[in-house]
Nucleic acid binder design. Structure first.
Lengths: 262, 262
DNA sequence: CGTGTTTTTGAATCATATCAACGCAGGTGG
DNA sequence: CCACCTGCGTTGATATGATTCAAAAACACG
């Protein structure tokens, strides 16, 4: 009911001592490299634009897994951008069951409405350890005003995010288990590709089967069996936190996935 | 693939001869009455604001059921606002199965992105006969600029719409049939209430059981049985195109519905 | 190395889909 | 005015995808 405070790891500044746990490639551009790459796909950015984005690195801090980034009904006073790691938007039922609406990967915004001062209708939480840029509203709005290209890119990124949300809804609403999983993995392949984190159809997937289940509207038990089926059919190889897409073509067909983003 | 043309009934002007088929109350404000009421709930509108909205009545035209309002991948050059009747956003699978992402009732925008010239990732179609205001982009943007209150109200309405979309996702992703139906009906009660179309917990629901099914991720057969269960339990009375909520309290509990909009 | 988390497995059960058929009402045309 | 058609709601029988519960095996971590 009553808005609570924004919860985030309170280290005052950047923590360089942190060893990145699952990001292999140290991106050019440091912790905001993913953001630059992603936005660069939505609009042509100039050197000053890149510099402004690079300036966001000063606001980066580490968060542990399970850290709540924005609490439900809370009005955030910062723009939050994922730099490394996985976060998600979710809601819980009284029964305790959780539904994940979206995965937030490096380069993704946590909450755009926050900037306009509206309370959020769901919770945002880190699914893995990672780094988050916590940009004060003033600085953020300032940057958008000074760099219209960045603003444009953010706007387009938002439309893409909305389209993705509808895709997830279609996933849950009209696809069977294996198809849902296939679609999700294709999407993650594409999104990780657009931030330069895919090499040879392979990328880090540091999620629990329960995390996948809650995003697909399935049980973790069923997710397990679905994954086994996909492995058995030679579509994927998933071991530890590393996913390799063995048959991208067939996986896309199975999930009826069509590339849409750029 | 290639954008196709915007399809809409091509009557040049308002058609007054049309007999409203399911709207009982002739709203003050004529065909845009619902819009005025809805926006009034999001921001305090002045007389000039209302006048500007009333001016939209000149762009109203009738559409038949099944009329495609905006085709997928199409860039609309008009803002479309539902005045009477039901429309929906949906997507189809190759199998032919349809998933409805949102119902659009009087006062709702069909596509906001259209105004910015982005192609749509889904289709918008009339689920019933009705009236749509087709406002040229220029006129629409002009109005927003001249009437900041209206712009604010639209912005808030959009946030509410996004929250509703997440609620639908939660519905499909983690609720059982009867709970989904209960939640949906509660939502429709609230939304129709906010545009003054509810009298005594009763309102028009001119939808097919198949239309409901596609919005709930269920089969029309199953929707039928769910509705029977709700009737048997004395929660609702649904006959013809008229729905009466008999036990709002219990229905909300069943669907875990919480009021959110204003 | 133990301890807690995650993955894997099996069996039973449940919710929902599927298929097929029938009734009913509204509208149409002869 | 009646016969026909079509769309929608209703029903029953059966099939199946997914859940639940429970427990063992594999892992990851400090």
């Amino acid at each position: 009911m009553a808005p609570s405070t924004l919860t985030i790891a309170s280290d005052p500044v950047v923590s360089q001592k942190e060893r990145r746990p699952w990001n292999l490639v140290p991106e050019a551009g440091g912790s905001v490299g993913a953001l630059v790459r992603k936005l660069g796909g939505y609009a042509v950015l100039g050197a000053e634009d890149r510099a402004a984005l690079a300036g966001l690195a000063g606001f980066v801090r580490s968060v542990e897994r399970y850290t709540v980034l924005v609490e439900q009904d809370c009005v955030a006073d910062h723009a939050l951008i994922v730099c490394t790691g996985f976060a998600c938007r979710y809601k819980r039922r009284i029964s305790g069951r959780r539904l994940i609406f979206a995965y937030l990967i490096p380069g993704d915004h946590c909450d755009r409405g926050a900037v306009y001062g509206y309370p959020l209708d769901h919770t945002i939480e880190a699914l893995t350890r990672g780094q988050i840029a916590k940009v004060p509203r003033g600085h953020y709005l300032d940057m958008l005003e000074r760099h219209p290209r960045i603003a444009l890119a953010f706007q387009r990124a938002k439309l893409a995010e909305e389209a993705t949300a509808r895709e997830w809804m279609a996933n849950i609403g009209m696809r069977l288990g294996p198809e849902r999983m296939a679609h999700l993995l294709c999407e993650l392949l594409e999104r990780h590709g657009s931030i330069g984190q895919v090499t040879g159809d392979q990328f880090d997937l540091p999620l629990t089967q329960a995390d996948l289940a809650d995003a697909l509207g399935l049980t973790s038990v069923h997710v397990n069996r679905v994954l086994q089926a996909l492995r058995r059919d030679g579509l994927i190889a998933l071991r530890g936190r590393r996913l390799r897409i063995l048959a991208p073509r067939r996986l896309r067909e199975l999930g009826e996935f069509e590339a849409r983003y750029l």
